[in-house]
């Protein structure tokens, strides 16, 4: 079947099998391997992308269901410079192995688009659909707080680390 959608600002048209999942279309046909697959039950969130601005788990959407949609993957987030959420994850050590990170970042972007000043509790519940096994979430929360402040045009909260030399 032919499917056409906008991915990271470019119109992409391709022939796909009807059963092709959106995540496999992105990864294998468009070579956008930043979107990851960590499970097949829509639970881990590593495959999260934005579909028409909404955080969507691309492992449980067929590519053909995204016909005509505007899809943003992690590769499309930086616009000449890093998105504030990417910057926050770098500044506040919001990632270790990096595998959940693209999905986590996309969920955080969606969260901050809806609420530019979330409390810690709102951040924690806002990213409950994304699992991380490395960080214990502590620094992911700090990263999103950093991004939220930056996006509001404020100074980010101070770093929690002191030099130990």
């Amino acid at each position: 079947m032919q499917v056409s959608m906008t991915v990271n600002g470019r119109t992409r048209t391709a022939d796909v099998e009807a059963r092709t999942l959106l995540v496999h279309y992105l990864r294998e046909q468009l070579n956008l391997t930043g979107t990851h697959v960590g499970c097949e039950t829509s639970y881990c969130g590593a495959c999260t992308v934005l579909v028409d601005g909404k955080a969507t788990k691309s492992c449980t959407v067929l590519a053909v269901q995204a016909e005509g949609a505007d899809v943003t993957t992690v590769e499309g987030l930086a616009n000449g410079e890093l998105h504030p959420v990417q910057e926050g994850f770098w500044e506040r050590h919001g990632l270790q192995c990096g595998f959940c990170t693209p999905g986590m970042i996309m969920s955080a972007v969606a969260l901050l688009n809806e609420n530019d000043n979330p409390s810690e509790d709102e951040i924690r519940h806002g990213i409950e659909g994304n699992l991380c096994r490395c960080t214990g979430y502590h620094n992911i929360v700090r990263s999103i707080e950093y991004a939220a402040a930056t996006m509001r045009g404020e100074d980010p909260p101070a770093s929690q680390w002191k030099d130990e030399s």
Binding site: V74, W90, G98, T101
Partner: peptide, 8 residues
């Protein structure tokens, strides 16, 4: 991190 946060 730069590669990992950009999906690269």
């Amino acid at each position: 991190d730069p590669a990992l946060i950009q999906g690269k």
